[in-house]
C-alpha cells in the first residue's frame, strides 16, 4: 500500500504546485469559480433566498466589504465568520470577481 500511495500522490503534488503558481498569475476568475463551490453549498445561484441571501451580481467592492466585516467580527453569523476566517485578500477578490459575473439566468449551467 505504501508504494501505491506514492504513485497516486506524487503526480498530484506536482500538479497542484504548478497550478498554484498559475493562480498567482492573476487567473482570478478561475480561482473564484473554484472557491465558489464552497459558497454554493448554502447560497443558491437563483432568486430563491430565504434566510441565506443570494450573492450573485453584487458589485465586487461590496462583496469584499461584507466578507471583511464577517472576518473582523462586524457581522454576527458564526458560519459566515468561520467562512471569512478561511479567506485571504486574494480569495475574497476572486470570489467577488466570480459572483459579480453571475446572473440567475446562468444558474442552470
Amino acid at each position: 500500500m505504501a508504494a501505491l500511495k506514492g504513485s497516486v500522490l506524487r503526480p498530484f503534488a506536482v500538479l497542484l504546485f504548478v497550478c498554484q503558481i498559475e493562480a498567482q498569475a492573476e487567473d482570478l476568475y478561475a480561482y473564484g469559480e473554484y472557491l465558489s463551490g464552497e459558497c454554493l453549498t448554502c447560497h443558491r445561484l437563483d432568486e430563491s433566498a430565504g434566510q441565506i441571501p443570494a450573492i450573485f451580481g453584487w458589485p465586487e467592492d461590496k462583496f469584499v466589504e461584507i466578507l471583511a466585516m464577517y472576518k473582523h467580527g462586524a457581522r454576527e453569523n458564526a458560519a459566515m465568520r468561520n467562512v471569512a476566517a478561511s479567506l485571504g485578500d486574494e480569495e475574497m477578490a476572486a470570489l467577488a470577481r466570480y459572483f459579480a459575473s453571475q446572473t440567475p439566468k446562468e444558474s442552470a449551467q
Partner: peptide, 20 residues
C-alpha cells in the same frame, strides 16, 4: 477538481473542505 485536472487538464487549486 482532481479528476478534471487529470482527465481534462483543468487548473487545480489548493483543496479546501468545510462542514456545517
Amino acid at each position: 477538481q482532481a479528476i478534471l485536472a487529470e482527465l481534462a487538464s483543468k487548473q487545480a487549486f489548493k483543496p479546501r473542505f468545510r462542514n456545517t
